[in-house]
């Protein structure tokens, strides 16, 4: 490393520190302040550290709403990501392995899924008519419908790297179609599956708009909705509001620390190929 590279690095880190790290430090500091201290909105060391007090108070708010929200968000995320992996891999597999006139249609739908904003009110109307409006099940299927396109694309391009000889060897070994998929292909999809899980989990966990529309009602609250609700309620209790932001930021941070590589792989998929 040259001196120039070293100093450029130091300066860049200083600038990035102010722009990208300080806002998070501000969240952390405000979250542990007292109510009066936090209300000043200043970037300052807390007069008193109230980490545990604020934590328990946030959790207790509105009859442990935040815990319920974490539960709901977890259920939605786990269920929809499971289905997204399974469905995405199955569609990507057939799409890649079986060229036919249908493929163009499926591709058109995939692109539409990536591009078109969901038609909200008609969706509510359909959810209502099948009895899934305001239900976690309905929310899970919504997330699956909206996340499919991305999953299919990732799986399809990964499956293209698995030699077809393997399928044929399995056919000769007497495998049925579902056995080829579940016993030969699916185990080989591990790297891309991890990527899909990580990227989709984060986006579903962070999703605000869709629960806002499709999951109204107290008992269905999700983590992002609590932030939105508390924003109104805690106008004067910034310490609690920021404690909530802190809590919502921690899951992605943990995922980021452990799965940085998979996130990068997923987010940049297609960037090189175009």
């Amino acid at each position: 490393m040259t001196r120039r590279q070293f100093y450029t690095g130091v300066i860049s880190l200083a600038v990035a520190g102010v722009i990208f790290i300080l806002p998070f430090v501000f969240v952390l500091l405000t979250a542990v302040k007292t109510k009066q201290d936090a209300a000043l909105l200043t970037f300052s060391w807390p007069v008193e550290w109230h980490f545990l007090d604020n934590l328990t108070e946030v959790l207790r708010t509105r009859n442990y709403m935040l815990l319920l929200a974490y539960f709901n968000s977890t259920v939605i995320t786990v269920c929809s990501v499971t289905l997204l992996v399974l469905f995405g891999a199955m569609v990507g597999y057939v799409l890649q392995r079986r060229p036919s006139g249908w493929n163009k249609v499926i591709y058109a739908f995939v692109l539409a899924g990536l591009m078109i904003p969901p038609a909200v009110v008609p969706t509510i109307w359909i959810l209502q008519s099948v009895g899934l409006f305001k239900t976690l099940t309905g929310m899970v299927f919504i997330q699956v419908a909206y996340g499919l396109a991305f999953s299919v694309l990732l799986f399809r391009s990964f499956i293209a790297t698995i030699p077809r000889d393997l399928d044929e060897a399995a056919i000769i070994d007497g495998a049925k179609p579902w056995q080829i998929f579940f016993r030969v292909i699916l185990p080989l999809l591990k790297p891309v599956t991890v990527t899909v899980i990580v990227v989709q989990s984060i986006s579903i966990f962070n999703d605000f708009t869709n629960p806002l529309y499709y999951l109204p009602g107290r008992e269905n609250v999700t983590v992002q909705l609590t932030l939105y609700n508390f924003q109104g309620q805690f106008q004067t209790q910034f310490n609690l509001l920021f404690m909530n932001i802190l809590l919502v930021t921690i899951p992605p941070l943990i995922v980021f620390v452990f799965f940085n590589r998979q996130i990068v792989a997923g987010m940049t998929a297609g960037a090189v190929k175009g």
Binding site: T123, I126, L127
Partner: peptide, 18 residues
């Protein structure tokens, strides 16, 4: 039929509303 489960969810909750 591998495509069917995905197709049903996508059609009912995305294509149809659109």
């Amino acid at each position: 039929w591998f495509v069917m489960p995905a197709a049903v969810v996508f059609s009912v909750l995305f294509l149809a509303p659109t």
